[in-house]
Computed example of a mutant assay.
Amino acid sequence: MNNFIQKGRTITATLAAAVTSGQLVLLGNGKLPAVASGTYAANAEGEYNTGGVYALPSATNGTAVVGDKAYWDSTNNVVTITAQNNDPIGHFAAPKAAADSTANVRLWL
Score class of each variant (00 low, 15 high):
G51V: 09
T75L: 02
S21F: 11
Q6S: 07
M1Q: 08
G46S: 04
G30V: 10
A42H: 09
Y71E: 11
V19T: 12
K69E: 08
N49A: 14
V53S: 15
D87I: 13
T63G: 02
E47P: 00
N61E: 13
W72T: 01
G46M: 08
A64G: 06
A44V: 05
A97Y: 11
I89F: 02
G67S: 07
L56I: 04
F92D: 02
A17W: 10
G38S: 13
V105G: 01
G51C: 05
V19Q: 07
L24F: 04
T82I: 06
D68K: 05
W72L: 01
N61Q: 09
A44E: 15
V78N: 04
K96R: 04
S21M: 10
T39H: 07
A64Q: 07
A83M: 01
T75F: 03
G52N: 02
D100S: 11
A70I: 01
N49K: 13
A44P: 10
A93N: 09
F92Y: 15
D73P: 02
A98V: 00
V65Y: 10
T60V: 03
G8Y: 00
G52A: 05
P57Q: 12
Q84Y: 06
T20S: 15
S21V: 09
A97H: 08
N77Y: 15
T60I: 08
L107M: 13
G28I: 03
A97D: 15
G22C: 07
V78K: 12
L15Y: 10
K31D: 10
V78M: 09
W72G: 01
I89Y: 02
V79H: 07
G90R: 08
A59K: 14
L109S: 14
V19E: 09
A97T: 11
P33C: 13
N2Q: 07
N3W: 11
Q23L: 05
A13E: 11
Y71P: 03
F92Q: 01
N29P: 11
A103T: 00
T14G: 08
K69W: 10
G52K: 00
I11D: 00
I89C: 06
K31M: 11
F92V: 04
D73M: 01
V25A: 06
A70C: 02
Q6I: 02
S58G: 09
Y54S: 05
L32H: 05
A16M: 13
Q23R: 02
A17L: 12
N29F: 12
Y71C: 08
A18R: 06
V65R: 08
I11K: 03
